[in-house]
């Protein structure tokens, strides 16, 4: 992932980011990408959930 990718993701999300802002966000966006890669590797099949509030 690079700056252009972040700008493209922002555009797709309807978010306006300057080059400088996108560059600043890049490390955190990469961290989120790594986090998602960890979850992808688990091949989760469960339905998404809450937590459920206490009754």
């Amino acid at each position: 992932m690079n700056l252009e990718t972040v700008l493209a993701m922002a555009a797709a999300a309807g978010v306006t980011l300057s080059n400088a802002r996108a560059e600043a966000a890049l490390p955190l966006v990469l961290a989120m990408q790594r986090a998602d890669a960890q979850l992808r590797a688990l091949e989760l099949t469960e339905p998404p959930s809450g937590p459920d509030p206490v009754p």
């Binding site: 998602d36 688990l42 989760l44 469960e46 959930s49 809450g50 937590p51």
Partner: peptide, 9 residues
């Protein structure tokens, strides 16, 4: 969604 699936697990 994957994160919320993980929460279920």
């Amino acid at each position: 969604v994957r994160a919320r699936q993980f929460r279920t697990r």
